[in-house]
Simulated assay, not measured.
Amino acid sequence: MIGPEDVEAAARRIEGRVRPLVVTPAEPAAPFGAGAARLSFALEFLQHTGTFKARGAANLAAVHLAEHSMPEAGITIASGGNAGLACAWAALATGTRATVFVPATAPAVKVAKLHEYRADVRLVGTEYAHALEASQEFAEKSGALLSHAYDNPYIAAGAGTLALELLRQAPDVDTVVVSVGGGGLFAGTAAALLARGVRVVAVEPEHCRALNAALEAGEPVDVEVDSVAADALGARRISRTAFELARDPLVSSVLVPDAEIVATRRALWHGRRLAVESGAAAALAALRGGAYTPAAGEHVAVVLCGANTDPSDLA
């Protein structure tokens, strides 16, 4: 488990290393499904590497560099793309090597960016789980530090630092809505906010429901992965930390159909000229599609968390 003190420690470590969170009102709220509620957007897709994952990668690297525990072989990670980008960025910024395993189905835009960050990119299998197994084998043989896309306390705590920045800019926020894959962003956000009485809505695609299925089963379980947002949210199993935090009564777990994710992504482009990933659009899709209905006057902040996408299909 992680708590608010872990997120606060991460914030101190990465201060000056990551871009400040931009928070903007999304008025009028009604077209986005929020009715009489107040709606804000947390534009975390403006972060280094295009996602919140830069925060966790920066935190992990800072810890190991400070403790002189970074191996000569550097860091290795498995990723659908975004966590690998963050790992490669953090490695390049600190003079460390990065070996990134991604499924062969990873979006070309993400693979190209990995090469720009000088990562050793290895395409393995068709799912995140295949890349994870390969990264584990590589770490065992090479001695590289095995990072994880989401199931690591430093990664999750780093991700949660955006919630602290959100609170500083919107101290009256009642509810924060986040997309969930393996649970790193959710865990960090929940760790930062639940103790402060702020609700967290965890949003997943209907067919990438690792957290929702775990809550239903009473423990983390493997799920099938089949969604337009699978490259970012396609974890087979939720982290134990995320599962435990999600049992808090201030947490709601909701599901959204792919059709609503696609429609929301297009609405963000046509209405706001915001080009985000399907995984990022999933959070707002919960409001547009009615999976989460805010109360009148409720201040809801939606985290738009990823921009590593090919916008050619948004025209």
Results as ranks from 00 to 15, higher is better:
L185G: 04
L146W: 14
L145N: 10
A217Y: 01
A170S: 11
V180G: 07
A170Y: 05
G218L: 01
A157T: 11
E216H: 11
T175F: 13
S147W: 15
G218E: 08
L162Y: 14
E140I: 13
S142V: 04
A159I: 05
R209H: 14
L167I: 07
L164F: 11
G181Y: 10
F138K: 11
P153C: 04
L215S: 02
L166D: 08
A190V: 02
A159Q: 15
S147V: 09
V198Y: 03
R209F: 09
A217E: 02
K141C: 06
Y150N: 02
V201P: 06
A214R: 02
A213W: 05
A214S: 00
A170P: 05
L167R: 15
E204I: 00
V198K: 03
A187G: 06
L193M: 03
E219A: 02
L166I: 01
D151L: 06
A134P: 13
G218I: 00
E206M: 01
V173F: 13
N152I: 03
G181P: 04
S179R: 04
G160F: 11
L167F: 12
V203R: 06
G218N: 01
C208K: 03
A187Y: 11
V198I: 08
A191F: 10
G160D: 06
L211Y: 00
G182S: 06
G158C: 07
L164M: 10
E133C: 12
L211E: 01
T175A: 04
E133D: 14
A170T: 15
R199Q: 11
E133S: 15
G188C: 09
S179A: 14
V200D: 03
A190T: 04
G197Q: 01
D172F: 08
Y154Q: 11
E137F: 14
Y150S: 03
Q169E: 11
A170V: 15
N152W: 12
D172I: 01
L145Q: 13
H148Y: 11
S179Y: 06
A163W: 07
E206L: 02
K141W: 10
A210I: 02
A163I: 03
V173M: 10
A144I: 04
P153F: 12
D151Y: 12
L162G: 08
R168W: 12
E216P: 03
E133H: 13
A191N: 05
G184D: 05
L162W: 09
L146D: 08
V178A: 06
R168G: 14
G158S: 05
P205E: 00
L167P: 10
D172H: 15
L146H: 13
E165G: 08
E204A: 00
L211Q: 01
S179L: 04
